[in-house]
Design a protein around this nucleic acid. Sequence first.
DNA 1: AATTCGGGGTG
DNA 2: CACCCAGAATT
Length: 353
Amino acid sequence: MNYIATINIPKFQEDLITWFEREQRTLPWRENQDPYRVWVSEIMLQQTKVDTVIPYFQNFMKHFPTLEALANADEQEVLKAWEGLGYYSRARNLQSAVKEVVAHYDANVPDVPKELDRLKGVGPYTKGAILSIAFDQPEPAIDGNVMRVLSRILRIEEDIAKAKTRKTFETVVRELISHENPSAFNQGMMELGALICTPKSPSCLLCPIQGHCRAYHDGVEQTLPIKTKKTKKSSHTYFALVMEDDAGNFILEQRPEQGLLAQLWQFPMVDTKQVDPSHLSLFVEEKYQVQIKSIENLNPVKHIFSHLTWFLDVKHIHIEGKINLTERIRQLSKVEISKFPLPVSHQNIYKQL
DNA sequence: AATTCGGGGTG
DNA sequence: CACCCAGAATT
């Protein structure tokens, strides 16, 4: 299907780019074209709003101003800078890929697709964003914004939840993209999706490319894009154990290397299905080899992830005795805990102390 | 092709 | 409550 047959491409490019140059937001990663800064910003912006990313980006650049600084940093330090941003594998993959660039590309971010492809955490979107924004190459960068905007402009009624559909958009962008200013073209598409062509009630009357928009012409902009996938959610209930000794130290454990919240630290959690609540004391004394002096309830914590919900029944347990410490189980003071990366749910427990 | 990865904002 | 966000890795 030839979606772009009726598009006046030069006029479309000019209208979009002129609008972008005039209306773009002032953002820290737009200060220059430093490929490292573009790269970091694109990783942070994955599934994450601009307003959320700004302070994280500023802080990250302060701590890790160069590829070398990030490559040489301690992983826990990197995770601490990522704390609260979510999708923590982004941080670990980014550091891994940066090490790769320092070691094998003499600390120069690759400017060819096949080399970018091999870097951990760099997928089709991020590759295109780096190539177009940092290196001025006319490569597509297809994200959720671009699919929404172009599904409307071209009235593309394919299901954007299907992986294959991204290729449709790559194909049309290769035909539409400005070769004179691919960076402004790609960023303009995304900026338009963020500011004008929003998911609900798009501001078509303010849109710089309204005259090119088939969905607006046909009055169907509200029905696009088409997206079928539904979310199925589960929930889990845990005891969260705030175990404090007489000296005011708390037991923290590190989560596994893989999976949800990998490598972050937390107050020990026990699945409520694994233990009879009336025998919690015995269970804890046995598992952690401690003597329990008292138990009080703290405020329960409910935490909603995108695909599941945690209910944390928080127990403040005063203990005495020698705890069995390992690399992944430590006894820490309140001040020391603040240096460790914690999930937001456990930050909420920490705040109660 | 479907699932797993966070967290916050919006209506 | 459901949906969305400058998506990628894993299964």
